[in-house]
Design a protein around this nucleic acid. Structure first.
Length: 418
RNA sequence: CGGGAAGUGGCGCAGCUUGGUUAGCGCGCAGCGUUCGGGACGCUGAGGCCGCGGGUUCAAAUCCCGCCUUCCCGACCA
């Protein structure tokens, strides 16, 4: 069977990437190496990601809960492969309340261990299964080479943890999350095509039997892992004593999964859809889908702009009114382009006199005069067109830079062609 | 840890080779004015232990020694 390989190609993306992150006001670097401050606009994007993922997670039956930030160090040690995998990147708290702690507390790098301690208490009978839990939280991994959003020391994520009665059910659930949550979100909301597959043994999650992944391709031809789902087998169940009685009275260890997606998805958006003018947000994700820009306030333009914004909002469009006429029009136009707002509606005296507004698409830059009264009908259509176009762009790029090979010997040639 | 580079107003940099006026430039920031349909312009102004410590010298951002920190490439990784 042919293996699909994404071909990395070294390009000078980091500076460009960091410029977009800074100029679009998504984030700043934090004071401690590898940490970051997510600015309001970046956080608004994260909130949209959270909302869309959360809807899909709940549709898959999982419920949200919360577990502590601090994990007793001994919990980590219970699963041999797990502790070996995470030890090098742990942040450890040794003092509390001015005294040295009897047992150091690890800042969670992921929550399998602490959650499974509770799963062991909660699961007694096959009737308690499946147990499907999701947590929205921050985690800390002391990475060697941090990069804003893509790999930071502290990051925000969603981590799902489940326990099932059978291996088949656990495997099916891990794959269900992979496709119905992650792949569906990436393709239909982010507009980024992904390759769905299984990680090699070397890249597998520490403590898992199998790790599944969705991999996207960024603008520079590099692959980016955008979500993972793990089949944990009975490894943690045995380490933490998660046992249940079957309907025949036998005692068995639960079969488990865990899965996560992070603020890296914001980085994927920048790298996957960005262009030289900044970020390009897919409309279904964009916190602001349309910005109504008041060019100048004279001759009824201010009233017209406000009315258009109100009408669009009433029609269910996420719209913002930019009436900061003290700031130059050009500056504001550039700002919204950098921030990637998919559609801009420009309204000034000239437009009002003609009974029109100027509709501008962020993805193509195309401008068009649209009658003021027709905007509410037209804008949603344009938003969907932008969504489709961004996905098509990304798909075209991925296909152009993806090669099918049947042996390792062919890889260098395939990679060389980009 | 291995290999490279850099530390100078908020950010980005020049100045250092060949010590010497008051340490300069762009962006940003503040005030005033002219602008305003694509990042405008003019004038005025605020803001610096030149990474830290020591040495050489009449004199050090500049030369010498030591230290610290950061960044880039690699290993690690959502």
């Amino acid at each position: 069977m042919a293996q699909r390989v994404l071909t990395p190609q070294a390009e000078n993306y980091p500076q460009w990437y960091q410029d977009v992150v800074a100029k679009a006001e998504l984030a700043d670097n934090g004071p401690v190496r590898g940490t970051m401050v997510i600015r309001p606009y970046g956080y608004a994007i994260w909130e949209r990601i959270q909302r869309e993922l959360d809807d899909r997670i709940k549709a898959a039956g999982a419920r949200n809960a919360y577990f502590p930030l601090f994990i007793p160090e001994s919990y980590l040690r219970r699963e041999a492969e797990h502790v070996e995998g995470f030890s090098p990147e742990l942040a450890v708290v040794t003092h509390g309340g001015g005294k040295e702690l009897e047992e150091p507390a690890v800042v969670r790098p992921t929550s399998e261990t602490i959650i499974n301690v509770f799963f062991a208490k909660w699961v007694q009978s096959y009737r308690d299964l499946p147990l499907l839990i999701n947590q929205w939280a921050n985690v800390v991994r002391w990475e060697l080479r941090p990069r804003v959003f893509l790999r930071t020391t502290e990051f925000l994520w969603q981590e799902g943890h489940t326990a099932h009665a059978t291996q088949d059910e656990a495997r099916a659930y891990a794959l269900r999350i992979l496709t119905e949550v992650y792949e569906d979100f990436a393709v239909n909301i982010l507009g980024l095509p992904v390759l769905v597959g299984r990680k090699t043994e070397r890249e597998r999650f520490a403590g898992a039997d199998a790790t599944y992944t969705i991999e996207g391709m960024m603008g520079d031809g590099k692959a980016l892992q955008m979500g993972t789902s793990h089949e944990l087998g009975q490894n943690f169940a045995k380490a933490f004593g998660i046992q249940f009685q079957t309907d025949t009275g036998a005692s068995e260890h639960a079969w488990q999964t865990s899965w996560g997606a992070t603020t890296r998805l914001i980085g994927a958006l920048v790298m996957g859809h960005g262009d030289d003018a900044g970020l390009r947000l897919p409309p279904r994700l964009a916190p602001t889908q349309v910005v109504v820009v008041l060019v100048r306030a004279e001759d009824g333009a201010a009233e017209a702009a406000a009315a258009v914004a109100a009408d669009l909002a009433a029609a269910g469009v996420r719209v913002e009114l930019d009436d900061r006429i003290d700031t130059g029009f050009g500056r504001r136009a550039v700002e919204w382009e950098l921030k990637g707002v998919p559609v801009r509606v420009e309204i000034g005296p000239r437009d009002v006199a003609a009974g029109n507004a100027t509709l501008v698409r962020r993805d193509t830059g195309a401008k068009e005069a649209v009658p003021l009264g027709g905007l509410v009908a037209r804008v949603p259509t344009t938003l969907e067109e932008v969504q489709t176009a961004l996905h098509a762009d990304a798909t075209r790029r991925r296909d152009a830079r993806t090669a099918d090979v049947t042996s390792a010997d062919e890889v260098p040639d395939a990679a060389a062609s980009g």
